[in-house]
Amino acid sequence: MATATHGHSKHPHEEHAHANGRKFTVRVLRQEMAHSGSHWETFELPHEEGMNITTVLQRIAANPVTTDHEQTTPVAYDACCLEEVCGACTMVINGRVRQGCSALVHKLLEESPTGIELRPMTKFHVVRDLVVDRSPMFQHLKRIKAWVRVDGYHDVGPGPRISPKEQEEAYPLSRCMTCGCCLEACPQFNDRSPFIGPAAISQAILFNPHPTGRVDRDDRLAVLAGQGGIVDCGNSQNCVKVCPKDIPLTDSIAKAGRDTTIYKIRKWFGR
C-alpha cells in the first residue's frame, strides 16, 4: 500500500498492488455440467481502470489460458443489467456473496491482496461454472403469491390510493431483485431445511398490506405459518447484512412473526 512519504516517487504505480497494468490472479471454481465434479483454475490478467468482475470474465473469455499455460474454455457466467438491479451475476467473491458487476477489482484486491477467488453460489444447483439455477426462489415467490391480482387486461379504472407513509414502507421492499445473496448467507437456508428464506418472506410482507394485494393475505400467511415458513428462521440476521439493495429484511421477518401468530390464533378460534 502506498505511504505518504512516497508521494513524489517517479513510479507511483508500482506502489499499488492494483495499479493499472499490474497483474493480478483470479481463481475460479469451474464445473462443466450440473452433475460433474468441480476444479479450480487460475488466470492472470492486467488490471484496468474501473475493472469489475464482469469485465474480468470477459477478458478471460477473450483469452482463456490458465497460469499453467493451458488452453481452456471461457468461464460461463450470467449478467444482464450491469448495474446491480437484475441479480443475474450473483456469485461468491472472496468468500462473500455479491454481484460481479458491482464488485470492483481494486477494492477486492485491497480485501485480498493475494488474488481474487470466484465460485458459484453454494445454495443453488450449478448449471455451469458460475451460472446457477435460481428457480427455487421463483417457486417460493409463487407459493407466497408475490403479486397483486388483476382480472385481465381490460381497464379497471384507477387503483386505490396509497398514502405516502405506506409507500415509504413498501418501496424499500419492492427493490428486491431475487438475486439470492440473502439465501446464500442464511445459515437456515440449505438442503437440510425446508426454509423458503427471507426474500420471499419480505415479499409477502410487501404485498399483504397493499389495498389490492390484501385479498390474498391469508393465503400468504398460511404459507408463512407452514413448513419452511417464518419459524424456520434462526434470527442470525445475515440476510439484512448482505442484501445489496438494503432491504429491511429483519423488519419483515419480525412482522411476519407477529402476523402469523395473530393469523394462527384467529384460525384456532375458527375465524
Binding site: G95, R96, A185, P187, Q188, N190, R192, S193, F195, D232, G234, N235, S236, Q237, N238, K241, V242
Partner: peptide, 24 residues
C-alpha cells in the same frame, strides 16, 4: 432438531448476529 437444520457459516460471515446465532 433446529440445530440440525442450520449450517453455520461464521467463518465467511463474521457478523455479530451470526456469531450470536452460533452461540445460541
Amino acid at each position: 432438531m433446529i440445530i440440525y437444520t442450520g449450517k453455520s457459516n461464521t467463518q465467511h460471515y463474521r457478523y455479530g448476529g451470526n456469531i450470536r446465532y452460533s452461540f445460541q
